[in-house]
Every structure is written in structure tokens, then in C-alpha cells.
Amino acid sequence: MMSKVFWEFPLTASLVVFLFVFFFAAIFFIPDSFVANYFLSYPREWNPINWFLSSLMHGNFSHLISNLMYLFILGRAVEYKVGPSKWILFYGMALIVSALLDSIVRGIFMGDNTPVLGASGAISGLAAVAALLSPFTLRMGGVTFPFPMFLIAWGSVYTDITNVFEKDQIAHWAHLGGFFSVIITAYFLEEKDRKKLKNGFILNLVFFTLTVILFYFIEARYQ
């Protein structure tokens, strides 16, 4: 039963398994010099090969597990709503835009050449799509459950924006690039798909505004 639930959305599940296996394969079989040359994305070096390969590599086990957890939840929500081919489009575009924004901001404007790695930039793109198309539900085992998908997405954006200049070894600019890549990806979609994204954005905006107002009144009540 658990196996059927895991493989319910095969593209997401396959990438989760691949990244998990690749992490250990890289430790034992890929030389450190090869990792440094090809599996790290350096902001001042605009290299698409490194952008892609760096999304396969993770710094440590906790980094890997954190990304896989988000990928498993967000990826299946997007795969359910748009199917495998558009899933790949959203994920791939988020990967590219996240690397571009990180390179432009940190490499050109900040003069920072600290390399980044991990799939979190691309996963941030899935977070945006999940929030727009499935803000309140998650599909699991053939059943749609209430789930605050929008809170995961917007919580992540808030964390990245408020910590974007912190030296905390987290690629906040890449995360933001992945999240907002959905705006660019929308131009490659059909009109009906763009309309769904627009409606999702309006719904998120309304709910976000109501949430802010609610917190304002709660805070004012207890002052």
C-alpha cells in the first residue's frame, strides 16, 4: 500500500529516488576535483552544465532529506494538476532562472563567488505552482486531503526575502529565482493554463490579504 502511494505520481517519485541514490553514489564514486569543476554552480561562471549538475548534488544528508521532503510533497501536487510534461517544464525553468538570478545578483552586483548546490531552486518553482494550482489540498493515495500548500510556499518566500543578505550558507537568491520563474514559464503555456495560474494568484492574494488583516486584529486585541 505504501509503495503504491509513493509511486502514485511516478515522475516525482523517480526524481526523489534518483537524488537519494545519487547522493551516496557521488560520495563513493565521484572525485572531489570533479565535483568542484562540474557539480558546483559558481555565480561568476555562467555555465549551464554546472547549473544542471549542481541541482543533483547536496552538501550533506540533512540538506538532501530536507529537499526530498519538499520535493515529494510539492512535486506530487504539481504532477497531479499539470501532468509530467508540464511538470518538467516548470522544474527545468525554475532550475535555469534560479541559477541566473543567483549569478546576476551575487556574481555581478555583490561580487560573491561562493558556489551553490542542491535542487532547492528548482523545488521553489514547484512550490509556486503548487500554491497557485493547489493552495489548500494534497492528493495522497487517490484521495484529496485538506492541506495548507500555500503556507509552505509563502512561508518559504518570506524566509528567503527576510534573510536574503544573511551569510547563512543558504541560496536565498536562487530560491527566489525559482519561485518567481513561474511568471516566465507561463508564457510557454496555453491560454487555459495561464488562466488557471492567474486565478490561483488572485486566490492566493485574497487569502494572503485576509490572513494579514486577521493577524493585525489578533495582535491589536492583545495589546
Rank of each mutant, 00 (worst) to 15 (best):
M2W: 15
M2E: 12
W7G: 02
F9C: 09
A13D: 07
S14T: 14
S14Y: 13
F18N: 08
F18L: 08
F22I: 00
A26W: 03
F29V: 10
F29L: 04
F29M: 07
D32Q: 15
D32T: 15
S33W: 12
Y38R: 09
L40I: 15
Y42L: 08
W46H: 03
N47P: 15
P48G: 12
W51M: 11
F52M: 05
N60F: 13
S62I: 03
S62F: 07
L64Y: 12
S66K: 06
N67C: 06
N67L: 04
F72P: 10
F72Q: 14
L74D: 15
R76P: 03
A77Q: 07
V78W: 09
E79Q: 13
Y80R: 08
K81S: 02
V82P: 13
L89A: 12
F90L: 06
I96G: 10
S98R: 09
L100V: 06
S103V: 15
I104R: 03
V105R: 02
G107P: 10
F109E: 09
M110H: 07
D112W: 06
N113K: 10
G118I: 10
S120F: 13
A122V: 11
G125M: 00
A128K: 09
A130L: 06
A130G: 12
L133M: 03
L133P: 06
P135V: 00
G142R: 08
G142M: 10
V143S: 06
P146E: 05
P148D: 00
M149A: 05
M149N: 05
M149V: 09
F150Y: 14
I152D: 12
W154P: 02
Y158C: 00
V164E: 06
D168Q: 00
D168R: 03
I170E: 07
A171S: 11
H172F: 15
W173E: 05
H175V: 02
H175Y: 07
L176I: 05
G177E: 00
G178Q: 00
I183C: 11
T185P: 00
A186V: 06
A186F: 05
Y187S: 08
E190V: 02
E190R: 01
E190T: 01
E191A: 08
R194F: 06
L197R: 11
K198C: 10
N199V: 01
L203S: 11
L205D: 03
V206N: 01
F208W: 13
T209C: 01
T209P: 05
T209G: 03
T209N: 03
T211A: 02
V212I: 15
I213E: 04
L214P: 06
E219Y: 11
R221E: 07
Q223N: 14
